[in-house]
């Protein structure tokens, strides 16, 4: 089992994490935005997460914490 935690307020919706997630379970939300006005990343299928941390590695703003 694996899990990621997204610090929504720090996310800038850049999509780098989405582009490298091997399980394609991340997307930039079309509706949810944070106080900075960015649409933030969210998980589409949290159960499929394998905890590889590719997303966190690619994130320029240390938004994602990964547990496994």
């Amino acid at each position: 089992m694996a899990k990621i935690t997204i610090n929504k307020e720090a996310c800038k919706g850049c999509g780098l994490c989405v582009s490298v997630c091997p399980k394609q379970i991340l997307r930039v939300s079309p509706t949810t935005s944070n106080n900075q006005g960015y649409f933030v990343v969210e998980e589409t299928d949290p159960e499929k997460c394998i905890g590889c941390a590719f997303c966190a590695t690619m994130c320029p703003d240390c938004v994602i914490t990964v547990e496994r």
């Binding site: 905890g51 941390a53 966190a56 590695t57 240390c62 994602i64 914490t65 990964v66 547990e67 496994r68």
Partner: peptide, 12 residues
């Protein structure tokens, strides 16, 4: 579960 990736304390 253990944390495998988190923000380093060497960043403010």
């Amino acid at each position: 579960m253990a944390v495998v990736f988190k923000k380093t304390e060497m960043l403010t």
